[in-house]
């Protein structure tokens, strides 16, 4: 089978494999530019890694990461947690996302985004997650939000 270019090219009913899908999601587009990589997953969660680099800095004087890359990391990790729990890829859109910033990420450290889907309905997925830079008990940010299935249903 030819390697699909994006998740949208996967055949219907394809069982969602986070490790494999992460390669697609993180090779092209914004995820690719950010340098996101697959880290780990469980039945209802996915972790992606965002390595620090100069171009992603939000405050030039301090080297602290901008918040934009952290939102993107969490958007992708939580999005993938939805398909992981659903066990299949469903085209969807982020409805809303709230991010609470606990502290600045330490310059130079890779940020891990842990995204979890805690409830699926037919058309809405409820997600939450944390971003940390080494110690999950001392997060950089907490997020909570919702996705909506745009074509097909989650259940």
């Amino acid at each position: 089978m030819e390697e699909p270019k994006s998740l949208n090219d996967l055949p219907p009913g394809f069982v969602f494999d986070p490790a494999r899908a992460a390669k697609l999601m993180t090779r092209h587009g914004h995820g690719g530019w950010l340098g996101l990589t697959y880290h780990a997953h469980g039945p209802d969660w996915v972790e992606l890694a965002l390595p620090w680099r100069e171009e992603l800095v939000g405050v030039a004087e301090t080297g602290v990461l901008a918040s934009g890359p952290i939102i993107s990391l969490m958007d992708n990790a939580t999005s993938m947690s939805v398909w992981t729990l659903s066990t299949r890829f469903v085209a969807h859109a982020t409805l809303d996302l709230r991010v609470d910033y606990m502290r600045a990420a330490v310059p130079g450290r890779t940020v891990i985004g842990h995204g979890e889907c805690y409830k699926l309905t037919r058309t809405i997925a409820f997600i939450r997650g944390i971003a940390h830079d080494g110690d999950p008990d001392d997060p950089v940010a907490h997020v909570i939000g919702t996705f909506m299935a745009t074509h097909g249903t989650y259940l």
Binding site: G31, S67, G68
Partner: peptide, 22 residues
């Protein structure tokens, strides 16, 4: 640009958020 693309043909939500935060 491809740098801010999410799913094919659309902007990434994180990039939109980053722009609005700026």
């Amino acid at each position: 640009s491809e740098r801010i693309q999410g799913r094919p043909g659309f902007l990434h939500g994180g990039a939109i958020s980053g722009l609005m935060e700026m």
